[in-house]
Amino acid sequence: MTSVIQKAGGLGTVPGPQPRSQFHGRRRPGELIIKTVLRLAAILTIVTTAGILVALLIPSLSLFR
């Protein structure tokens, strides 16, 4: 079964094995550091948001008592 692209003349690509990158099968050198920094930033954001909510809820709860 031929596709529409093949009927129209194709894209000029030849099927076959794709070239492998030099990092195929292993992580890039700084990937672990970047992932760790991003996770710490996400955790810090959640903790900051929770702190803001607590800081706003405590005075508002005492206002309605």
Results as ranks from 00 to 15, higher is better:
M1G: 14
T2V: 10
S3M: 03
S3R: 07
S3T: 15
V4E: 08
I5Q: 07
I5T: 11
I5F: 06
I5S: 07
Q6H: 11
Q6E: 15
A8I: 07
A8C: 06
G9M: 03
G9L: 02
G9D: 06
G9N: 04
G10W: 03
G10P: 00
G12N: 02
G12R: 02
T13R: 10
V14N: 00
V14T: 11
V14K: 05
P15W: 13
P15G: 07
P15N: 13
P15S: 14
G16Q: 01
G16C: 00
P17A: 07
P17C: 01
P17Q: 04
Q18E: 10
R20H: 09
S21N: 11
S21V: 08
Q22D: 07
Q22P: 04
F23T: 05
F23I: 01
H24I: 08
G25E: 08
R26V: 15
R26N: 01
R26I: 12
R27D: 12
R28W: 07
R28I: 03
R28S: 05
P29T: 14
P29Q: 14
G30Q: 13
G30E: 13
L32F: 11
L32S: 14
I34D: 09
I34K: 06
K35T: 07
K35W: 11
K35I: 10
K35N: 11
T36E: 13
T36M: 13
V37R: 12
A41Q: 11
A42D: 00
A42H: 04
T45Q: 04
V47C: 06
V47F: 12
V47K: 03
T48H: 07
T48L: 15
T49N: 05
T49F: 14
T49V: 15
T49K: 06
A50Q: 03
A50N: 02
G51T: 13
G51E: 08
G51M: 15
I52G: 06
L53F: 07
L53Q: 01
L53N: 05
V54P: 03
V54W: 12
A55S: 09
A55P: 00
A55D: 05
A55C: 06
L56N: 11
I58D: 00
I58L: 14
P59W: 03
P59G: 02
P59E: 05
P59L: 02
S60V: 15
S60L: 15
S60K: 10
L61Q: 10
F64I: 12
F64K: 04
R65W: 03
R65K: 06
R65G: 02
R65M: 04
